[in-house]
Structure formats: structure tokens, C-alpha cells
Design a protein around this nucleic acid. Structure first.
Lengths: 178, 178
DNA sequence: GCCTTTAATGCAACTAGTTGCAATTAATCC
DNA sequence: GGATTAATTGCAACTAGTTGCATTAAAGGC
């Protein structure tokens, strides 16, 4: 149930409408938690009826825009969740399944799609490096910024992890023409 | 829909009953794809009615043990899936949400649970290192073994990634007593 | 021969996430 | 000023995964 807490965090950083949040989930927040707008609206609804947030309609907006703000109960719930012991997060990686499957049934033309994946990860890494240069070129001043930097660096490391793994896989696959 | 393909791969490597598979998912397979026995039985049932596998009842077994074997159609389906272009796998990491949340609401006693997580990852890394020493101390002879080694090395790298990230996070959190 | 344990399979109800589409309102084009 | 486009919210139906429990049958103690 982390979507709820990702939304609380995002709304504490800045109150926003559902669509604003969806946009933030496509960009900054998206590099550690992804969600579609349908999911977001559904969860915002539940959070409101659970008394964690409130919403006020915004004038000067198309449609019926609603701005959501976190209430005391929401802050409390977030604090509770942060401290609670974390699950070990069950690992599920389709790429590893693919590699093992290739091993079991023989050459099946994996290399091409790995190459494409690799390019995506290289692009993402470049994007994160831009973020880092823009937002963290100086030592962060406060704790919150330092933690945001840790999260961004984790994203970077994650992309590097992928690129290394893909390179190893590609070099094994290259030993035969697939 | 990778569970299906993880099961096909496992069954090609060696035909097995549902419980056998559940055990393998708790150990070797589990380090890249996890699944509970309920999920496994449900999926095996679907795969059988889709004609991808067959099952024969085993005598000399408690309960009504069934051994599952992959059929031609199953091999074909696996081959098709391996080659098809892979999704970029939407990232969802509760730890990163926690770190950002801590940043947003201030110290909430995260360090202790991060420390516990760190230990789990160190233990897992040690386990994988044992596997590596046992199964891959010599250069792998065939392609399938080489790919299994790549998968295992990915697991190792993954644990290292976690440990590094947790260490960075802990060092930021240590700057104040939480 | 009964009783407990263990191996094995499975159902039902739930939670989380995905996919595809619909409805409303405001801005903008021409 | 009517038609189109964009912003915004949302429903419904589906797939995947989780949690908790139920059933069957053999093995093994005593």
C-alpha cells in the first residue's frame, strides 16, 4: 500500500490536483514509483473518505479541478508507515526469466530486444545525470535535500546495474549468432 | 504474465509437481521471480486447460501428486515470449518512497528498519556467493550454464546495489539522532 | 487400530494495478 | 458562434498477486 504514502508525500511537498499528481508521477516521482491517473484518482477518493486529505474545488480551471491537501491524520499515517518495518520486497524480474528461458530452450532472438532495453536505460541514466547536475551540484543544504539526493543516486545506480547486467547478457548471447 | 513463462522454464529444466515448483520458487528460482503455491496451482491449471502442459498422476505419493510436463505448444509459447519486445518494467520501490517521506515530514525513526533491511541483503549476498563458488567456480561449459551464471551475477549485483543505497541513506540519517 | 503430522492440492475473498473508455467544462480556432 | 481540442475527473472490467483457510491421503508413533 505504498501508492497512498507516495501520494501523501507528494501532497505534503506541494498540494495538487489529480492530474498534477499524474504528471509528477510521469516525471520526478516516476523514477521510484509509477502510477496511472486512474489509480491516482481512485486512491485520492479513498484517502479523502478515510479523512487523510481534503479537497477544495479550484475556480479558473477547465473541468472541475480539485486541489488536495494533507490533513493532520494524513501526516500521522505517513509518519507511522515510515517507521514501520519494511517488507523485503519480493523480487520479480521478467528479464531474468527471459534469460533462463533462453538457456532452457536455446537461441530465440533475445539479443535485439536486450539491445533496445539497454538504450532505454542509457537514456534514463543520462536524464538522471542532468537532474543531478541541475539540482545537486553543490552539497545539499538540508536533510530533505540530502535524502532526495540519495533517492536520485539510487536511481542512477539502478540504471547502471541494468546496463551492466544487459552488457553481460549480450556478451554471452553474442557468442553465437542468434 | 511472466509467472506462466517462469513455470514453463522451470518445467522444461525438470518436470515437477506443484509443490516441487513451490519449493524451487522458495530457493533458486525465487531469486529472480517469487510466487506462492496458490498462485502456482492456479496458473498450472490455466496452463493445462490452455494446452501448454500436461499432468500425470504420480503413484507412491501422499495426497494426489501430479507431475507436470511441458507440451510442444508450451515450448512454442515460451519461445514466442522470449523474443517479444520487453516492457521497461515499471519501477516501484517502497524504500525510495520512505526516504522521500522522511525528507518531507522530518525524522521518523527510519534508521532502525533500514539497518535490518541491510542485514537481510548482506545475508542474501553471502548466499549467492556460496552458490557461485559451488556452481560456477570453473568457466561454464555451455550456453545455458553461462546464462544461469549471468542471472546469478545479476542477483549479486542487485544485493550490492541495495547495500550501497542503504549505506548512503544510513549515513545521511546518522547526521542527526533519530 | 486410532491420532497426529506432513505432503499435496486447492478454493474464496481480497488488494493492487492495468486497460480502455466516457463525461464534463473551458479555451481556442476560424 | 459552432466545432474542435485540451484539461480534468472518473467508471467498469479485467489481470495479477496476497491471505487465510479447507481438503485429501499417506506415514509413522504408540
Amino acid at each position: 500500500m505504498s501508492l497512498r504514502h507516495a501520494l501523501l508525500t507528494a501532497l505534503i511537498e506541494k498540494p495538487a490536483s489529480g492530474l498534477d499528481l499524474a504528471k509528477r508521477f510521469d516525471r520526478s516521482i516516476g523514477y521510484f514509483w509509477s502510477a496511472t491517473h486512474q489509480q491516482i484518482y481512485k486512491e485520492l477518493g479513498r484517502m479523502e473518505s478515510d479523512g487523510l486529505i481534503e479537497s477544495t474545488p479550484e475556480e479558473n480551471a477547465r473541468g472541475v479541478k480539485k486541489i488536495h491537501r494533507v490533513l493532520g491524520k494524513g501526516r500521522q499515517e505517513l509518519k507511522r508507515w515510515v517507521a514501520e518495518c519494511g517488507e523485503p520486497a519480493p523480487l520479480r524480474d521478467p528479464l531474468m526469466v527471459r534469460l533462463r528461458a533462453e538457456g532452457a530452450i536455446g537461441p530465440a532472438g533475445l539479443a535485439k530486444s536486450l539491445q533496445a532495453l539497454r538504450e532505454e536505460h542509457v537514456a534514463k541514466r543520462a536524464l538522471y545525470q542532468e537532474f543531478e547536475a541541475r539540482d545537486f551540484s553543490k552539497a545539499p543544504s538540508d536533510r530533505a535535500a540530502a535524502l532526495r539526493h540519495v533517492v536520485l543516486k539510487a536511481g542512477l545506480k539502478h540504471e547502471n546495474y541494468w546496463i551492466e547486467v544487459l552488457d553481460e547478457a549480450l556478451s554471452v548471447l553474442a557468442q553465437d549468432d542468434d
